[in-house]
């Protein structure tokens, strides 16, 4: 076998390894894709517009906030600002993941950042933490199914949204916090994990009660990150490295 064929096979198996890891993400996101589509049409979007928003923004919570405000006839610039505010946490993800994908060609990086969602970041960070290389094929295997299903579910929800049964009894409104708790727990072996979680939880709750949503996410996140910056490096496991 030529070296090229070997590396192609390698990329294929990396891709499918990523696809396997995407399954829980696809399952957890499915109700929200459908729900977004249904809510979008309820708030005056066409089916095509709902699909387009999912395909272009690809950020569940920000899309929900966006259509909610759209339905309330809020000024367009304020809707865009709100989408920006809800998605602001990605700035931190982007700063963190850049270290892991710096070896990719620029175009691949540009595509990679487009797919940078909460689970995409969390799963890729865990791979890097395990000492493995975050490759483009693997990253696409993880991200593409999530993207394709998200867009398809939005369209389905928009077209058939009235068929969705009682979402409260099905627990749909609280599935994401459960899922995100799982992602938080996945990082529990990192240095400073518990202090960071406590600082972020306290700051986000206080900010939620005072400043309000969605800023509590950015404020809480910055509190946790700052704590890790301020504490002496010997606690954070980065001392002695260049």
């Amino acid at each position: 076998m030529s070296a090229e064929a070997i590396s192609e096979n390698r990329a294929k198996s990396d891709f499918w390894q990523g696809v396997r890891l995407s399954l829980p993400v696809v399952v957890a996101a499915a109700p929200f894709g459908l729900l977004f589509g249904a809510l979008a049409v309820d708030n005056g979007f066409s089916v095509l517009e709902a699909l387009l928003m999912s395909a272009m923004v690809f950020g569940g919570a920000s899309q929900m906030v966006g259509i909610e405000l759209f339905g309330q006839h809020v000024a367009p610039w304020l809707i865009v600002l709100s989408i920006f505010a809800v998605n602001f946490r990605h700035v931190l993800y982007s700063a963190g993941i850049g270290r892991r994908i710096a070896h990719w060609p620029p175009v691949q990086q540009a595509v990679g950042y487009f797919l940078l969602t909460d689970p995409q970041f969390a799963v890729a960070e865990r791979k890097a933490e395990a000492g493995e290389t975050v490759g483009f094929a693997w990253y696409m295997g993880l991200g593409l199914p999530v993207y394709v299903f998200w867009v398809a579910e939005s369209a389905l929800g928009a077209a058939f949204g009235r068929l969705i049964p009682d979402t409260h009894a099905l627990g749909i409104d609280f599935l994401l916090p459960i899922y995100f708790l799982g992602l938080v727990m996945g990082f529990r072996k990192r240095p400073l994990w518990l202090p960071v979680v406590i600082a972020s939880a306290a700051a986000s709750i206080i900010a939620y009660k005072t400043v309000g949503s969605p800023w509590h996410v950015s404020i809480g996140a910055v509190a946790g990150v700052l704590l890790a910056v301020i504490l002496p490096p010997r606690h954070s496991g980065v001392e002695g490295r260049p």
Binding site: R89, L92, Y93, A95, G96, R99, D118, F121, A122, E125, L176, P177, F180, L181, L183, V184, G186, F187, R190, P191, L192, W193, V196, V197, A199, S200, A201, A202, A203, S204, I205, H216, V217, I219, G220, A221, V222, A223, G224, V225, L226, L227, A228, V229, I230, L231, P233, S236, G237, V238, E239, R241
Partner: peptide, 20 residues
């Protein structure tokens, strides 16, 4: 190193705010 420590704290710091 302190910035690196901050970046390493990003997953727990951000994801916690989506739960708490």
């Amino acid at each position: 190193p302190r910035v690196e420590a901050g970046l390493n704290a990003v997953p727990a710091a951000v994801l916690t705010t989506l739960v708490a």
